[in-house]
Write a protein that binds this DNA or RNA. Structure first.
Lengths: 146, 146
DNA sequence: TTAATATTAGATAAAAATATCCTAAAAAAA
DNA sequence: TTTTTTTAGGATATTTTTATCTAATATTAA
């Protein structure tokens, strides 16, 4: 949609950590099976997150991973940039024309610009704490309902 | 971004047709070199567009392709759907959680919903005639400037 | 110290997207 | 009719993304 499958998995994993973490280490295996993510694939992604210091990882018995910063200090966009890499220097034209800039815009340029800005704001604004709280709230609502 | 490279090329080609077409046939080769699209790749895409009746193609000398409908009757979204296929029945959750629907939404659901709707509206609203006129207007402005 | 357990890391594989090649078919010009 | 030109279509190749496997390393428990 906007980020890769890898980033999608990464966001899921990070939300999981934010929801369940009370300073305990959580196994990659656990997250993978919970969210149906291929284990070894997630393991790779976790390594990337670790290298970007978004999480800390611990080997061996009682090993696992945990957030490396307070959840409210990690934004969705940080995760996406870590996994997919930062966005290209010069924003690509949405319909691939190279005579496209703010001054000489392609015909869809201005409309897309607004939408892209909205996305950037959304991903930059949401932090893991908010998202985790949302998830918890929803679960609770579902539980009471049943 | 939202559509494949193939769709991007297709949009470019269709805009080209809308801009230059005066019922003349335009060679795929011409479009490919103009926009730096791999010729044989574009040829494939053109076949798809043809099968979806968005263009008509003619073989042999003086052959080429042309729009199959008035430019104002072709929307960007038609091109994207033709090339990438229609969108999936049930909209995927943007962060891949499957307990996600309007009633039980994932934490980013509602925000994304608005953005996705904006995109859909934009692509569904813009037609080739508008875009072609924009391109022509911009070119003219550039020409006068020089 | 040994065994069990989790991540790390490197290699490999499978799938999907993008790109290329070659021959055929069609159409017009010579 | 023959040649030239242009798209059509099938096969193949390359690249990128996603997924898997195996062995190594670190850590803790027994």
């Amino acid at each position: 949609m906007l980020y890769s499958k890898s980033s999608e998995y990464a966001i899921q994993a990070m939300i999981y950590l934010a929801v369940y973490q009370k300073d305990t280490r959580i196994m990659v295996h656990k997250i993978a099976s919970e969210y149906d993510i291929p284990l070894y694939f997630l393991a790779k992604i976790v390594q990337t997150l670790s290298k970007h210091h978004l999480i800390r990882s611990f080997r061996g018995r009682n090993g696992g991973i945990k957030l490396n910063k307070p959840a409210n200090d990690i934004r969705v966009i940080d995760i996406v940039y870590a996994v997919d890499g930062p966005p290209p220097e010069k924003e690509m034209c949405v319909i691939g024309l190279d005579e496209c800039s703010d001054s000489v815009a392609c015909p869809l340029h201005n409309n897309w610009k607004i939408i892209k800005e909205n996305i950037r704001v959304l991903l930059g604004h949401e932090n893991l704490e908010n998202l985790a709280n949302e998830v918890i709230r929803k679960r609770e609502a579902l539980r009471l309902q049943a």
